[in-house]
Amino acid sequence: MPFWIKRVRQPEMFSRVWRFYRDGFAQMRLGRTLWKIVALKLAIIFVVIKLLLLPSPPDEANQQQQLQNVLLKQQ
């Protein structure tokens, strides 16, 4: 291992990463509002838009057939 990389024991490394994120989230002020907006937006995108507003795209076989029909009929 190169001299400039400090050896960190694995359990210690995981707990340091855990504390890093835990403290970071705990100390957020504006970030809390932003995370609420992100969560709401993702819910709208993946639930309202994807499931309710947009019809399911055709599966692969249908896509190919549909394109074939369009390509060969529209001449």
Binding site: L30, V38, Q63, Q66
Partner: peptide, 26 residues
Amino acid sequence: INFAIGVATGIIMEFEFGTNWSNYSW
């Protein structure tokens, strides 16, 4: 602020490739 509000707004365009532009996607 800009990153949080804007993130994932591009995903909707990827949905549209599948639903509205499936011939293109294929």
